[in-house]
Nucleic acid binder design. Sequence first.
DNA 1: AGTGAAACGTCCAGTAT
DNA 2: ATACTGGACGTTTCACT
Lengths: 144, 144
Amino acid sequence: MDEVDRHLLALLQQDATMPYAALGQAVGLSAGATHDRVRKLRERGVIRRTTVEVDPAALGRGVLAFVMVDSSRWVGDSGDRFAAIPEIQEAHVIAGSASVLVKVRTATTEQLQDVLRRLYAIDGVSGTQATVVLETFFERPVAP
Amino acid sequence: MDEVDRHLLALLQQDATMPYAALGQAVGLSAGATHDRVRKLRERGVIRRTTVEVDPAALGRGVLAFVMVDSSRWVGDSGDRFAAIPEIQEAHVIAGSASVLVKVRTATTEQLQDVLRRLYAIDGVSGTQATVVLETFFERPVAP
DNA sequence: AGTGAAACGTCCAGTAT
DNA sequence: ATACTGGACGTTTCACT
């Protein structure tokens, strides 16, 4: 993981369709050497996968909310229960008064309410505190 | 945006390096028609970009936290001020007691503290409430 | 780092809906 | 008009020297 690797990651985050030749020129390497670098980054798990960023609104998921989930017992291994709710995009176990923080995308606030109902159906969940997003300033990849 | 488009988006989210021939076979289309579909999804902005998912820990960003930022005045157009802090991965204007919710990734909790210091330097910011993530259950793309 | 074969993306004309 | 097929061409990937 040197400076060249970090540079490659930054470029690939911006546009992963870039050919290796152009990528190599940007970092001062041949196409073949660049190909090798990227392959190793994939093998080592630094690059998890190549994916497409989709506009949530185009998928009918215009409402974004963060929900603090309180629990009356241990939920540290209930990850699957949260994953079973497709509207939940992220779920994190947190330190502090609440137990789990989830990021939810729905089409309407009615559907958000329905997600809250399904959260309460998870064993141990004793409360939720939803925060609706009015505007997203930005969402960007982690800077290498 | 029909069923085929949604199927294509789901496949591309899993692996955007998949060849158009394989992609087409999965949805029952020729490679050329598949290419057309995907090109149109890009043109319409449904696909924002093709990118790589990088392991934050490999980049020395093992600490994840969410910070509620309180403000004593309007911060609805201070997006650039938040974007200027590279450790901030997301920033959202929210409804409720706090004004902005940010997602932060740092190497250590000391660096997290430093980010909080820089947040206070933004005009109008009157308080922060940081929540450290102990474990991430999952982070996944929005399901089409 | 350079080379070459195989695979892929991309465009086009024709065809069907 | 719009969407798909199949083929052709230029480019890119990727293993090998």
